[in-house]
Structures are given as C-alpha cells and as structure tokens.
Amino acid sequence: MHEFSLASAIVEQVKEIIEEHKAIRVKKISISAGPYELIIPDLLQDSFKIITDELEKFRESVLELIRKPARITCLECDYNGEPDSEGDEEFAFNFKCPECGSRDTHIDRSYLTIESVDLELPS
C-alpha cells in the first residue's frame, strides 16, 4: 500500500510550496500518473485525507488525480511514446515497443508529477 507514502510525499512537497508563497492554504493539488505507478485512486485519496486531517493549510483541499497514458522509450530502436496498443498477452503490464516489438524498454515513472497547486493567498 504505497499510496500512503505517495500521499505523504505530495503533502511534504506542497507544504514547501505553501511556505514559499506564504499562502493561507492550498485549495487544490493536481497530480498526474500513468499505469506503471500502480496507484489505487481511492487509497490515495483516503491517505491524503488522513494525513491532512488536522493541517489547517490543507483545510478542504482537493487532490485531483489526472490519469495519463503509459510512456516508454525503446532501448532497441529509440521509439518514444505509448506502448503497443495491442497490449502484451504475456505480461501483466504492457511496455512493449509498437515499432519493433521489443520489451527492452525504459518505462517513464517520473510521470507521477505534481502538475499544479491552487493557492489561497493574502491580498
């Protein structure tokens, strides 16, 4: 259940942003993730609620999860983009190159990204 660790990491990073901008509170946090992050959205939301429950700067804040398609870079033919749309019958996750069929691909996990935060600032 790595969602709790991820929610903690998100909150720690957003705390720094709140501090940097001297914000009153954060209203919304938008994060993006692809299928390789293996995130269960409900568990992430529950973890976020537990962690921020008593944090005044996160009062009524919303965590928005934007799903993005998987992205690979083929180490055989340098293809960069989505994996083979026909999927992979053998493995539980598809990281097959659509150009040359290789599974020797780099999977982009930096995808789990804080895209933006909506802050309430003092006027």
Partner: peptide, 18 residues
C-alpha cells in the same frame, strides 16, 4: 480578502527521495 493563484509545479512526487 484573499486571492487565488494557480502555481504550475510539474515536479515528480519522488523528487525529494530521488
């Protein structure tokens, strides 16, 4: 009175750990 501002972050959640 307060104001709202959207901040673009575009930073991986794993950044501190990485």
């Amino acid at each position: 009175m307060s104001q709202e501002k959207k901040i673009s972050v575009r930073e991986t959640v794993y950044k501190k750990n990485d």
